[in-house]
C-alpha cells in the first residue's frame, strides 16, 4: 500500500515543484519527489540505491537549486 502512496507523492511533488511561481519554493519542493523515490527504492529491494538517492535526491539537489535561486532571482518573470 505504502508504495502506491509514495508513487503518488513523487508525481504530485514533481507537479507542485513545476507550478510554483516562487522559485525558492519549487527548489525546496524538488526534495519531495527525491525523497519519495528514495523510499520507493527501499521498497523495490534496493537499499544501497535508496541511500544514495536519499542523500543526493532529497538533500544535495534541492540545496543546489536553492543556491542557484539565491544567486539569481527568486521570482519568475
Amino acid at each position: 500500500m505504502i508504495e502506491y502512496i509514495l508513487m503518488i507523492t513523487a508525481v504530485l511533488g514533481a507537479l507542485m515543484a513545476l507550478i510554483q511561481r516562487d522559485l525558492l519554493k519549487s527548489a525546496i519542493l524538488t526534495g519531495i519527489p527525491g525523497a519519495s523515490i528514495a523510499f520507493l527504492y527501499q521498497y523495490l529491494m534496493a537499499p544501497d540505491v535508496a541511500l544514495t538517492q536519499a542523500i543526493v535526491g532529497s538533500a544535495i539537489i534541492p540545496v543546489f537549486f536553492a543556491l542557484a535561486v539565491y544567486k539569481t532571482r527568486r521570482t519568475e518573470e
Binding site: L23, S26, P33, Y41, V49, Q53, F65, T72
Partner: peptide, 18 residues
C-alpha cells in the same frame, strides 16, 4: 524559466533511474 527547465531535466533523470 531556466531553473524550471533544469528541475524538469532532474525529473527526467529520476524517472529513468526509477
Amino acid at each position: 524559466n531556466l531553473i524550471k527547465k533544469v528541475i524538469g531535466l532532474a525529473f527526467i533523470g529520476d524517472g529513468v533511474n526509477l
